[in-house]
Amino acid sequence: MAKDMLNAVKDRLWQWLSSDPGFILNHCERILFMNEYREIERQSSALEKMQLLLKIIIEKGDDSCQSFVDILRIHQAHYWQLQQFFKPNTQGSSSPTVVADGGSVVTAREMENIRAKSINMKIETVSGAGGSQCGNSTGQNPQADYIATGGSVICADKICNTSTDGDFNLSVTVKASTQVCPGLVDETLPSSQEPAVKMIRQHKEKLVDCLRSDCSFILQRAQVKELVTDRQYQNLKDISQSEQTVIDLIDRLMSNGQKSCTLFIEVLKEPEVLRTYPQLKDISWC
C-alpha cells in the first residue's frame, strides 16, 4: 500500500524533498486543501515543511498517498535520490550500476562456495574527503542501482555458502575529515538566503501596504508571468481580505525560491505596475 511505503521512507523523503520544497508543494495542489497548503508554507524551514506535508498526506489515507507517490514518480528526475525507489527491476543483471561521490563507497561483491581461515571485508572511508566529484553537484542527476553521497556507504554484497574457521570482518568505518572541497562552501544557499528572496522578505511589509490597495491587479500580473498556476490564482482570488491575499502571494513566491522572486521583482518594476502602485518607487531593490 502507498501509505505503508510512505511511512517506511518518510524520514528520507523529508531530507530529499527539502532541497526544493516549493516545487513539490506546487505539484500537490490537487491533494491539499488551501488551509493545509498555507499551514505548510508557514513552517520556518524547508525540512519542517516537508515533515508536515508528509504527515498531512499520510493522514489522508491510501488514495492520497498513492496520488503523492505518482507525483514523485513523475518528477523523480527533479529529486534524483527518488530513483532508488523507482528504478527498473535489475534482477538477473550481471553487475549493478553504482554512483559514489568523493568519500562515499558502494560495494557489490559476490562470494560463493568459499572456505577460509579468516575473511576480511573491512571498509574504511573518510567523509568529506576530496574526490573526482567533490564540489557542488547542482544539476547533476545520476542514475544507478546504488547511489552513495556525502560520505555514505552502501554494502550490496552477496555472500553464499561461505564459511570461515576464524574471523569474518564486515566492519565499516567512516572517519570525519577536516578537508573542505574547493567551491563547496556557500555555493548553494538555502532558499531563504538567496538574494532575491532576502530582498522580498526585507520589503515584505512595504509590499503588502502597497499592493493591498488593488490586489487583483498584481494577482493578474503574477498569473500572466506564470508565477502562479491557474488554480493558485483562483485560490488567492477567493480570499476575502486583500491584505491576506497579498501576504499569501508573497509567501508563496518566497517559498518557490530565487527564480520566482527575481521574476516578481521584475514585475514590480514594470511601468504599468508602478503607475498602479506609485509607492513602489520608494523601494530600493539594490
Rank of each mutant, 00 (worst) to 15 (best):
S93V: 02
D101I: 06
P21S: 01
E226A: 14
F85H: 08
G22F: 10
D165W: 02
L6F: 01
R12E: 14
V224H: 15
M111W: 12
I283E: 10
L274R: 15
Q279H: 11
D251G: 06
T188F: 00
L184N: 06
D167Q: 11
L249C: 08
R73L: 11
Q220S: 12
L53G: 01
K204T: 06
Y233V: 08
T149H: 01
V273K: 08
G135E: 03
G139W: 00
S137I: 01
L170A: 05
T90W: 03
I239N: 08
N235C: 08
E59I: 03
D165R: 11
R275S: 12
S127H: 06
H78M: 05
D230R: 13
R231I: 09
E270S: 14
S18F: 03
K206M: 10
I239W: 10
T138R: 08
A222F: 04
V180T: 13
L72C: 10
Y37Q: 09
Y79M: 04
N120R: 15
T107E: 06
D157Y: 07
M50I: 02
D248T: 12
T97R: 06
Y37K: 05
L207R: 02
E48R: 03
S216E: 03
T162R: 12
S45M: 04
S242V: 10
D214S: 12
I265E: 00
V273A: 09
N169A: 09
N120S: 13
Q43V: 07
L219A: 07
E41H: 04
C210W: 07
K60P: 00
L268M: 11
H203Q: 14
L53S: 02
V185I: 13
Q179S: 12
L253I: 15
T97C: 06
Q43K: 09
F217L: 08
Y233W: 12
K10E: 08
E187L: 02
L6I: 12
K60V: 02
N136M: 09
I147F: 00
Q91E: 14
L25M: 11
Q66Y: 00
D186F: 11
V9P: 03
F68V: 02
I239K: 11
N89D: 13
Q133T: 14
R109A: 15
E59W: 09
V172F: 00
I247R: 12
N256H: 11
S242D: 15
A116P: 02
Q179G: 03
T138Q: 07
D101E: 02
L47R: 03
V174C: 05
G61S: 07
V197P: 08
D70Q: 13
S163G: 04
S127I: 01
E39Y: 02
